[in-house]
């Protein structure tokens, strides 16, 4: 595989390659995100395969992950970005890949990440008046039943 990725991050401050083997992962600082995504799309990553988030309460951040796929070269690339746990706001990628609109709604629904520039930021699965963000590690709900506890 070519090393265009190392050239790609060379000019960007705070960007680094993560040690994962496959797919290759790229950690970007928040300000460089939208510009890099535009550049990556121009590189041929025409499919936004998936978007998810991982909660990290010790590090006080939520890591967003985008999985890009190129139908020309068949390459997969993971792009990560860390957001503060309080008031996480990320730019919406809706203009680049229309599917981002709904993937971002899912992450907003389950993690409470807000997206600036999103046309329709609503909860995807839960009711509009649901309180809390269920997939965060500190989510508490008296409805949840755990084994061994009444």
């Amino acid at each position: 595989m070519s090393d265009w990725l190392e050239d790609f991050i060379a000019g960007k401050e705070g960007a680094e390659l993560l040690a994962d083997d496959r797919p290759r992962s790229l950690l970007l600082p928040l300000p460089a995100l939208i510009g890099s995504m535009q550049a990556l799309k121009a590189q041929g990553f025409d499919m936004l395969n998936d978007h998810m988030a991982v909660d990290n309460p010790e590090g006080e951040h939520i890591r967003l992950l985008w999985l890009l796929c190129s139908t020309e070269s068949g390459e997969l690339l993971r792009v990560c970005c860390d957001l503060p746990r309080q008031q996480p706001v990320a730019p919406s990628l809706n203009a680049l890949w229309p599917v981002a609109e709904w993937q971002e709604r899912e992450v907003y629904d389950l993690f409470g990440v807000l997206y600036s520039g999103h046309p329709d930021l609503r909860r995807l699965f839960l009711e509009d008046d649901w309180e809390g963000w269920p997939l965060r590690k500190d989510y508490e709900d008296s409805f949840i039943l755990e084994p061994g506890k009444p």
Partner: peptide, 9 residues
Amino acid sequence: MTPKTLTLQ
């Protein structure tokens, strides 16, 4: 500025 959230209504 915090992004605006919507409801189905």
